[in-house]
Design a protein around this nucleic acid. Structure first.
Length: 580
RNA sequence: GCCAGCGUAGCUCAGUGGUAGAGCAGUGGUUUCGUAAACCACCGGUCGUCGGUUCAAAUCCGACCGCUGGCUCCA
């Protein structure tokens, strides 16, 4: 059948490990019903229906059983059978039967190792003795076939590698990644907090987090002004009727907060900024000469998210989008989309993100507007990506209800993907709100709207920033750029004097004038990940210098204050992404 | 929302039915110090909330709230 010469791939190894795990589960739970058990990145999983909930101790037992199976070195035996035989073989396995009945081919394959037989396309390793390095990591619930209306099975995740050393390295990587988690660093660096008493998913930005955010926002504003955007502000609540007109009430009610009564009228807190911008647009009769009109706002929106999905700053219920709406003519779509793609790439580069993915999301099931309109908009987006020669993937059915979109997904410390920037072409809202311009022919024409963010939201972007730099922000973003450390009280005056000259240059500096030893002050500045520490003692006072220590631990020794201010200023101006 | 685990001082954590503990942080004092934690003393908790079992509950049971890992969802 399969020529057995080639070395099995690591995917095959992982897949076989999942079968061995299933075998172990079956020996411990003879009545187990089996779902599916594929290989995934770094490992595998298998879904089971079991008579009781698994405990962490069960994982240990299953692990031991697996080791026995590996020690026994039982062969994986492939066999081709027809549908009828498969139905008989898996008669007591409802999930397998469902799969068997849906397979297009009458012929299918099964693999048997020891007393365990599974429906499986394969391939597999020759025998269980080939498995070398694996570990069961966690238990989770997972709906059968990912459908929330179907039974929830118990999923066991594991990791598997070709060698113990690789497994060990992987576990160390995971432990290191955990240290970068923005939820952990957010607390350690005093950036933000979330509170049960205030409400889940509602963020308190502490002074240091707020400082970083402010720098990001200032940069964002300046760049948008440079690129021809107009900045606006719109209120946080609006009449419900507006959201009925927009289609949100019908299509996304589950994510909207309940209406509140104001003078007998229903209002809701806004889930999006677009209707506000549309209303501003419509305050004047717009000529084709005015287009494109680019209206930008750091707009705070509130959306209901189911309780189980909230995650630090990355998934919250109130957040500020770096939103903008571009009102343009059909012939301007391509240029405008291209400009936004360029801007988002510029942002990613400036903030040092290299690990992101471009996705083109197509029409979802729940959508408004005609198919030809969707096709036209999707084509426009695709064109831009292709002309700009940007690699992308198609994300089928993931568009917004009013139009297709290009998304940029950023990877967090643990490899999870989060949607950041997004660009959406929309023919629907202009139609619903009757948003027009007067053309060269003197007649009214419908505008096209491009919804876009180039960071995503301030909250999620901050989460990604923290994880990207493990909390050691580049100098231009660091909430405190310099900590001045006087060794003894008699050095405080000089320290304040140095701080004064740094402040003149808008350097964010703090003098640690506490009655503590220098070692303690260095340690704390180090833990705060402050880029520069200026140590000041008798020598420095005498020579009008500072002794510079970097957060990398490097000691630059004595430096003239003016020289160093120049150096730091250059680094700040360049927005260098290096840690220093 | 679903499945599972977790919730003890500001933080990190110990405490398996018999009067709540440690380190760090905080406060008061002493120390004025050369590149990652000086020393002494003090303060600090209705053990997430509510209810139940028990002579007795941080500990056992139930509900709720929140967090964590997945699943589903994600304009």
């Amino acid at each position: 059948m399969v020529s057995g010469r080639k070395e099995p791939t690591v995917e095959t190894l992982r897949h076989s490990t999942s079968h061995v795990m299933a075998q172990a589960v079956k020996s411990l739970f003879p009545d187990a019903k089996f779902g599916i058990g594929p290989s995934i990145e770094d490992g595998f999983y298998y879904d089971f229906e079991l008579p009781r909930a698994l405990t962490p101790e069960d994982l240990t037992l299953i692990m031991e059983k697996m080791k026995e199976i590996v020690a026994a070195d039982v062969p994986f035996v492939r066999e081709e059978i027809d549908r009828a035989k498969a139905q008989g073989l898996f008669a007591d396995q409802p999930y397998k039967l469902e799969l068997i009945n849906e397979l297009p081919d009458e012929k299918m394959t099964i693999y048997t190792q020891g007393e365990f037989t599974d429906l499986c396309r394969g391939p597999h390793v020759k025998s269980s003795g080939k498995l070398k390095a694996f570990k069961l990591t966690n238990i989770a619930g997972a709906y059968w076939r990912g459908d929330e209306k179907r039974p929830m099975l118990q999923r066991i995740y594991g990791v598997a590698f070709e060698t113990e050393a690789e497994l060990e390295a992987h576990l160390i990587r995971v432990a290191e990644a955990n240290k970068r988690d923005h939820r952990k660093l957010g607390k350690e660096l005093d950036l933000y907090s979330l509170h049960e008493e205030f409400g889940p998913g509602l963020v308190m930005w502490h002074p240091k987090g707020a400082m970083v955010r402010q720098i990001v926002e200032d940069f964002w504003r300046a760049e948008h002004c440079r690129r021809g955007y107009d900045i606006v502000y719109t209120p946080h609540i609006a009449k419900l009727d507006l959201w009925k007109t927009s289609g949100h009430w019908d299509n996304y009610r589950d994510n909207l907060y309940s209406p509140m009564d104001i003078d007998g009228q229903d209002y809701i807190v806004k889930p999006m900024n677009c209707p506000g911008h549309i209303i501003i647009y419509k305050t004047q009769l717009r000529s084709y000469r005015n287009l494109p009109l680019r209206m930008a706002e750091l707009g705070t929106v509130y959306r209901y998210e189911r309780s189980g999905v909230l995650h630090g700053l990355a998934r919250v219920r109130g957040f500020t989008q770096d939103d903008a709406h571009i009102f343009c003519r059909a012939d301007q779509i391509r240029d405008e989309v291209a400009n936004v793609v360029d801007l988002s790439q510029f942002m990613m580069k400036t903030f040092g993100f290299n690990d992101y993915k471009m996705l083109l999301s197509t029409r979802p099931e729940k959508a408004i507007g005609s198919l030809p309109q969707w096709e036209e908009a999707t084509q426009a987006l695709r064109n831009v990506l292709e002309v700009m020669d940007i690699p992308y993937e198609i994300d089928p059915g993931e568009g917004v209800f009013y139009g297709p979109k290009i998304d940029i997904k950023l990877t967090d410390a643990l490899g999870r993907m989060w949607q950041g920037p997004t660009i959406q072409v929309d023919f629907q809202l202009p139609q619903r709100f009757n948003v027009n311009y007067v053309g060269t022919d003197g007649a009214e024409h419908q505008v096209i709207m491009i919804h876009r963010t180039v960071l995503g939201s301030m909250e999620r972007f901050m989460a990604c920033l923290v994880e990207q730099y493990a909390g050691a922000f580049p100098v231009w973003l660091a909430p405190i750029q310099v900590t001045i450390i006087p060794i003894a009280d008699r050095h405080i005056d000089y320290a304040n004097q140095v701080a004064g000259s740094l402040k003149e240059m808008d350097v964010r500096v703090r003098v640690d004038d506490r009655t503590e030893r220098m070692n303690m002050k260095i340690r704390e500045a180090q833990l705060e990940k402050v880029p520069y520490m200026f140590v000041i003692g008798d020598k420095e006072v005498a020579s009008n210098a500072v002794s510079v220590r970097l957060r990398t631990g490097e000691d630059l020794g004595s430096v003239q204050v003016s020289d160093f201010i120049d150096r730091v200023n250059t680094i700040i101006k360049e927005k260098s992404c290096d840690s220093l």
